[in-house]
């Protein structure tokens, strides 16, 4: 894993190796579907499959070029944007946790704590006060990895991070901690923007298959609340049932 700052944008080859594989896989899936689909829909599926296949084989995505050009028009002065303004997938969610901002901020800021409530995150290694290395369980058993840096850190209020270098998923996000009136704890709000591996087509497919990242963010936030309010994440993993009937 490279830990240099964001590599320059490569116009000729802007799709990562994993994403290329995913594109080809998705193309295969669509091809299979379009065989069974008649009419205009079938034609559209075939065209989509062709484009995904081309994208996977050549490693070049026109849509991403376009999005980047557009973003550079919109935000020409933003320093080192890792994702174009409003591009990729955007998720926002919030929970209210019955703890003060100091407790919640300091637990979250120790990034190696995050796997305790983020289901797919296997480990976060803190390299120094700013850099960290992430290992995440991806779809279908893929291990995804990236380096990230905290680029804004306002104690008890905000942590913002973004991926650096050649990340498997390019993302930028922030979490804010805001006290709620009436001594009702803290609003914990996450905003996340990422380039889905395989692009929009694959992320839509993932959503259709019930594997929506927004749902996972929700579940992780609920588990964060469990951990902070009860000291443990509630689970039934490993409990007994009639599905393991003794002979």
């Amino acid at each position: 894993m490279s830990s240099t700052l964001a590599t320059p944008y490569n116009k000729r080859n802007n799709v990562g190796p994993l994403e290329r594989a995913a594109s080809i896989f998705a193309a295969g899936f669509l091809t299979q579907r379009c065989m069974k689909t008649k009419g205009m829909v079938g034609v559209a599926l075939a065209l989509g499959a062709g484009e995904l296949m081309r994208r996977g084989v050549t490693g070049h995505c026109y849509a991403r070029d376009y999005a980047r050009d557009w973003a550079m028009r919109e935000a020409p002065t933003a320093s080192q944007p890792v994702i174009a303004y409003k591009a990729g997938e955007i998720i926002e969610d919030v929970v209210t946790v019955r703890r003060n901002t100091e407790d919640l901020y300091s637990f979250w800021r120790k990034l190696s704590n995050l796997p305790q409530f983020m289901v797919r995150v296997e480990a976060v290694k803190e390299i120094d006060g700013v850099r960290s290395h992430w290992m995440v369980r991806g779809p279908a058993g893929y291990r995804l990895e990236w380096d990230a840096e905290v680029f804004r850190d306002e104690p008890n209020e905000l942590i913002a991070w973004r991926t650096v270098g050649n990340a498997d998923i390019v993302s930028v996000g922030c979490v804010t901690f805001k006290p709620v009136a009436g001594n009702r704890g803290t609003e914990v709000r996450v905003k996340l923007q990422y380039n889905p591996p395989g692009g929009k087509a694959v992320s839509t497919l993932a959503r259709l298959l019930g594997n929506a990242p927004a749902f996972e963010v929700r579940r992780d936030l609920m588990q964060f609340r469990q951990l902070m309010e009860c000291g443990e994440v509630i689970s039934t993993d490993g409990q007994t049932s009639g599905r393991e009937v003794k002979a």
């Binding site: 009860c230 000291g231 443990e232 509630i234 689970s235 039934t236 993993d237 490993g238 409990q239 007994t240 049932s241 009639g242 393991e244 009937v245 003794k246």
Partner: peptide, 11 residues
């Protein structure tokens, strides 16, 4: 007949 339950968490 099923396996006996076990402690899964501290509480």
């Amino acid at each position: 007949r099923v396996p006996d339950p076990t402690i899964l968490a501290g509480r």
